[in-house]
Structures are given as C-alpha cells and as structure tokens.
Computed example of a mutant assay.
Amino acid sequence: MDPMFPSLPLHAAIVDLDGTMVDTLGDFVVALNRCLDDLGLPRVGRGFVERTVGKGSEHLLRSTLAHVGADPALYEAAWARYQAHYLAVNGEQAQVFPGVMQGLAWLRARGLRLACLTNKPTAFAQPLLVRKGLAGYFEQVFGGDAFERKKPDPLPLLRTCEALRSEPSRTLMIGDSSNDAQAAHAAGCPVVLVTYGYNHGEDVRAVPALAHLDRLDQLESWLARWP
C-alpha cells in the first residue's frame, strides 16, 4: 500500500463540476461576450476565460470587467445580463469529458455516496448536470452560493461531508485545480486531481494530491489499491 493512501475505507466522494466533469469554457465565453456586447465593451478570448474560471461566476465577471477596462460600477448591470445569457446558453457549448460517466458509475457501484460541489451558482449547476445526463449520479448538488464561503475555503467541503454523513477523512475530493486541493487539504479530505482541467492556466501536476489522473475512469484501477 502506498504510504500516501489513508488507511480508512472511503464512504463518499465530492466531485467538482467545471473542468472536472464538463468542459464548460465555451458556455462561459459565449455568455461573457454576449454580456460585454450588451454593455458596449470589448470581447474576451477563450484563453483569458480558461485562466480565470474556478473561483465563482462573480469573480469571473469582476475579473472580466477589469480585464476590458470597464468601470467597476457596471458590475450589477453586467451581473444581471450575464446571468440571463448564461442560463440561456447553459450546456449548449459544453461537453462531458471522456471517462467521466464511467468513473462516476464505478464510484456508485462501489457504494460511495456522491455529491457535486462547485463554485458555479446552483441555478447554473443543477440544469447543466441534468442536460448532460449527470444529475442521477449525485445525492447532493451544492453551488458556490450554497454556503457562506466558496472553495478554496474548506467550509463547503465540510458542509458537504455533513450532508453526505461522511467523515472528511473518508470522503474523496475529485477536482481539477489548486482551489479543490487547498479546500480538501484544509478540510482533511483526501484529494485527486484530473490533468485536463483549467487550474488558472497552470500545470495541475505541480499541485499536491494523492494522484493526478488523465481520465476519471482511471479511478477504478487507482482505487483498487484503497482498503
């Protein structure tokens, strides 16, 4: 047994959404640029969005306005437009990453209780999971507005563990970024990271985790080593 593996059996898993299960960059780019068009502001490119997503839609929008040189006072008007555009496009430009459904099905077959925990607003996350055929895997879905603080704060993970009735040490966090890893480490959850996500434009392999997986269905062979 790898000494990095905890000795206790897993009871549950918490799975991030954007960049971990679904490639949503296209949705973000379309919604943001429609919002910027409404305000007469310059558009942003996919590369900027990829570096900026992960800390919640509010952070993404504020960063976008700053990036294009907009008056911060435009935020409230921009937020209303962004929400409307995102809800309209939600899932249209998004694709489930290869291996995700197989990985989730295997976790469920192993008897783990699953929750989706994302910094995306709950009103965006729930219909996206439904549209992409992922909702049925999860007992709980918590967005970035579900708790007082967002990842990388550990509070959302601790509250999600409570909802799953699972101790943090027996709850695996699966994510794609340093936000997920920092939250998991602080909450006392073991964590694995996928290599294909966003992670603010940086190589996620440099972020400490039990494993860095190229596909979520690699969990089956990796977790075979778990007690």
Rank of each mutant, 00 (worst) to 15 (best):
G111A: 11
H67G: 08
H85Y: 06
L65N: 13
L39K: 03
A31W: 06
D23G: 05
P42F: 02
A80P: 10
P121K: 10
L128H: 10
A66K: 12
A73H: 09
N90P: 00
P9W: 04
G103T: 12
L32W: 10
P6Q: 07
A125D: 03
W106S: 07
T64R: 12
A70W: 10
R108Q: 02
V68N: 09
A80M: 10
L114R: 00
K55I: 05
D71N: 11
R62Y: 00
H59A: 15
T52G: 07
T122N: 13
A125Y: 01
L65P: 13
L112G: 01
V49T: 11
M21P: 03
A80V: 07
G69Y: 12
G103Y: 08
C35H: 08
A88F: 01
N33I: 08
L41N: 11
K55G: 12
E50C: 09
A125H: 03
G45S: 06
W106M: 13
R113P: 11
A84Y: 10
K132A: 05
L32V: 09
A80F: 12
P9S: 02
A13L: 12
G69I: 07
E58H: 04
Q95Y: 01
A31K: 05
L41V: 11
R131C: 01
Y86M: 01
V68D: 00
Y86T: 00
A94V: 04
P127Y: 11
D37K: 09
H59I: 15
L39H: 09
S57W: 05
L41W: 13
L17R: 01
G103R: 09
Q102H: 03
S63D: 09
A125V: 05
G99W: 04
Y82G: 02
G69Q: 14
S7Y: 00
F97E: 11
F97T: 04
W106G: 01
T20S: 05
R51C: 07
A123H: 01
L129E: 08
H67D: 14
F28Y: 13
V44N: 01
L74C: 05
T118W: 00
V29D: 13
Y82Q: 03
K132Y: 07
H59R: 08
R62I: 11
C35R: 09
G103H: 07
T64G: 03
H11Y: 01
A78M: 10
P121C: 03
V15R: 14
G111S: 14
A88I: 07
T118M: 06
M21R: 11
D18A: 10
L60I: 08
V30T: 15
P98T: 05
Q83Y: 00
A80T: 14
A13M: 00
A13S: 09
L128K: 13
T122H: 14
R108K: 04
A31D: 11
H67Y: 14
L39Q: 12
A123L: 00
P6L: 05
G91H: 09
R34N: 13
Y75A: 12
L74H: 06
L25A: 13
L107C: 03
L128S: 09
A105D: 13
T118R: 06
G103V: 12
L117F: 01
K120L: 02
L129M: 01
G54L: 10
A105F: 02
E50G: 12
H59V: 15
